[in-house]
């Protein structure tokens, strides 16, 4: 029941504010409250190299680059320090199976932190 209801509630709340795409593994807190899934390339670690001179998107010239916005907001918004520090995290690939599910449930169950066994971030291993 909750599994069916919560995604509806989550989408109803998050879509109008953040244009939420229900990826089911929300990282808004680490991206200056800017949804990376609204980047036309759905980059989790942007910005790409195609940002225009005016800071707008390569794909949608009329739109501010999501990642430029995320960067500006990470600096300017009064967010908790620990959230701001997460901006430079290397975010893992999206788990497509979670699309449409509630990221709130996945956060509580830590399902959103599960990564494939071969995903490792050993800093300095070159």
């Amino acid at each position: 029941m909750l599994k069916k209801l919560l995604p509806l509630v989550e989408h109803a709340l998050k879509a109008p504010v953040w244009d939420c795409r229900m990826c089911g593994q929300c990282v808004l807190h680490s991206t200056g409250m800017t949804c990376p899934m609204t980047c036309p390339k759905t980059l989790r670690n942007g910005p790409c190299g195609g940002v225009r001179e005016n800071g707008n998107c390569e794909v949608k010239p009329e739109m501010k680059c999501i990642w430029v916005k995320a960067y500006d907001r990470t600096i300017s918004l009064p967010l908790p320090k620990v959230w701001k520090e997460h901006y430079n995290d290397i975010r893992p690939p999206v788990d497509m199976r979670l699309e449409g599910s509630s990221s709130w449930i996945n956060l509580v169950t830590k399902r959103d932190q599960q990564t494939p066994a071969g995903w490792s971030l050993k800093d300095g291993s070159h």
Binding site: P40, K41, T42, L43, R44, N45, G46, C48, I90, R91, P92, P93, V94, M96, P116, A117, G118, W119, S120, L121, K122, S125, H126
Partner: peptide, 27 residues
């Protein structure tokens, strides 16, 4: 159709995983 299943930084990390002995799956 654009793919972008992973981004450049994630792809780099997948390459490093392979260079250290496993596919992304862990195989």
């Amino acid at each position: 159709r654009r793919v972008f299943d992973v981004d450049g930084i994630q792809a780099i990390n997948i390459a490093r995983g392979m260079a250290t002995g496993s596919y992304l799956s862990g195989r």
